[in-house]
Design a protein around this nucleic acid. Structure first.
Lengths: 248, 248
DNA sequence: CGAAAACTTGACCCAACTCAACGAACGTGG
DNA sequence: CCACGTTCGTTGAGTTGGGTCAAGTTTTCG
């Protein structure tokens, strides 16, 4: 049950979603699983795939969900941080409706989906935790629709950065001076529905205004309050408050 | 157990999501519930609301999910048809992260959320059905992010119309000649991230090209194949195939 | 060290927005 | 059932945020 026991990471994640008792935790730690490593531009999930027998969560590294237009345009649908499930939707859905691609080298732990289904079936707390995780992801999707549909370039990027920083913090992997962003400007653009060229120009203005700082490949948030205001970011949609007993 | 028993409608909906046995159905029909009616520009759910003790599904009428920008711009996040749950997310989430507003007069049946939780807890089939419903909604959200983020006006509207028509058909409420659309052009615009003015102009071109027909207040799809191709619509993301036994 | 990937910058363009005025349809009350 | 206010749809003219294209420059990494 050491800290580098991958399933312990899963336990900790689910504990942010619902209260688990001793036996719940024991049941998780007994799950059969295998580990896997994916390198940089690889796919964890491919849209259309059908023999989905496992649900994976990320032990380390970053990934993103994406869908493509017929004419090849990419839209990033969400970002997966360490500790996140990559494809919890495959607990019950039989076909992948989007792809998940590696951002930085990713290590996963893959749990058999029927084993996970049994767990949800027999353990209300785990059922609740997994379900809440699903619901929060849907909530994040909703915010993204708003972001891409109704905000201008500066606001979109600001909002994305806020979400990223806060989720990093909740996952306990933020640096002291803000947080790093492991995405290229093109990927950033694909996440907010803009061109890499325009992302570049927009980031410049954000830097000029003292909202972010950029060195080499990394971007850090310089003025949290200003960027929060610009992106009109409200953490409500991340539902951080859901961990309490019986959801109070 | 007549057809106008509201809970029978719920049974039928859930049967499109998973296989239910006799006792599952009986358990649903025993749920306590009350009925409510909402008039035209009213709210079924308000963003930020906290005492969420019921989950409602729509017996008749249409509603839409929405979020607002700080500067008052609206983005419609999804559309609720008769038979759809309005706020299944409140089965486990304790705060509303978006609003749901009436499109046409809506009649709902409201089920106590703890009763529904108990059902999910004790009945794997129902747990599965409800969960799949949640997952499909998340999948629709993803498609909307793509739609709004990476397609042009004609494609966006075409895609939305396809989704609407197909879901209407699955819900069994399509007219013979395509289907009516109970949304104003402004609402259409808010759903696809455009202005009502631009929606108007774009609809004109779609009509000129013979893809849709418009009479009075109603819009019907004239050429399904053309509009499907234009919107690059693929029904994959609606996961209609999920109803089978054990998801095969 | 060299090639590939990522980032910058400028010039030009266009899809969609804004503003504004007007017409059509709806529905409500008398 | 008509009158009239309100909402919805339509159209034009002018503007703009962000896209495109293209040519560098810097960074990364094998």
């Amino acid at each position: 049950m050491s800290i580098d026991q991958p399933l312990m990471q899963l336990v900790r994640k689910l504990q942010t979603r619902a209260v688990l008792d001793r036996s719940d935790i024991a049941a998780i730690l007994e799950l059969p699983f295998n580990e896997r490593t994916y390198e940089a531009p690889g796919y964890l999930v491919r849209e259309g795939a059908t023999r989905l027998e496992q649900c994976s969560f990320i032990r380390s590294g970053f990934a993103f969900r994406q869908k493509l237009t017929v004419d090849g345009n990419r839209q990033i649908i969400g970002i997966c941080l360490p500790g996140d499930f990559v494809d919890l939707q495959h607990l019950f859905l039989d076909q992948a409706d989007h792809s998940v691609q590696v951002l930085t080298r990713v290590e996963t732990a893959d749990v058999d989906r029927t084993a996970l289904q049994r767990l949800a079936e027999h353990r209300p707390n785990l059922n609740r935790a997994l379900w809440i995780d699903t619901l929060i992801e849907a909530s994040i999707h909703r915010e993204w629709i708003l972001n891409v549909g109704r905000r201008d370039a500066r606001q979109r990027i600001a909002n994305l950065l806020c979400e990223f920083a806060l989720r990093m913090k909740q996952a306990g992997i933020d640096q002291e001076a803000g947080c790093e962003l492991p995405m290229t400007q093109e990927q950033l653009g694909d996440a907010v529905g803009l061109t890499s060229v325009h992302v570049n120009r927009t980031l410049k203005t954000l830097e000029k205004d003292g909202l972010v700082r950029r060195e080499k490949r990394y971007l850090t948030i310089a003025d949290w309050e200003k960027i929060r205001a610009l992106g009109a970011f409200s953490a409500l949609y991340l539902h951080f408050d859901q961990g309490g007993p019986e959801g109070v």
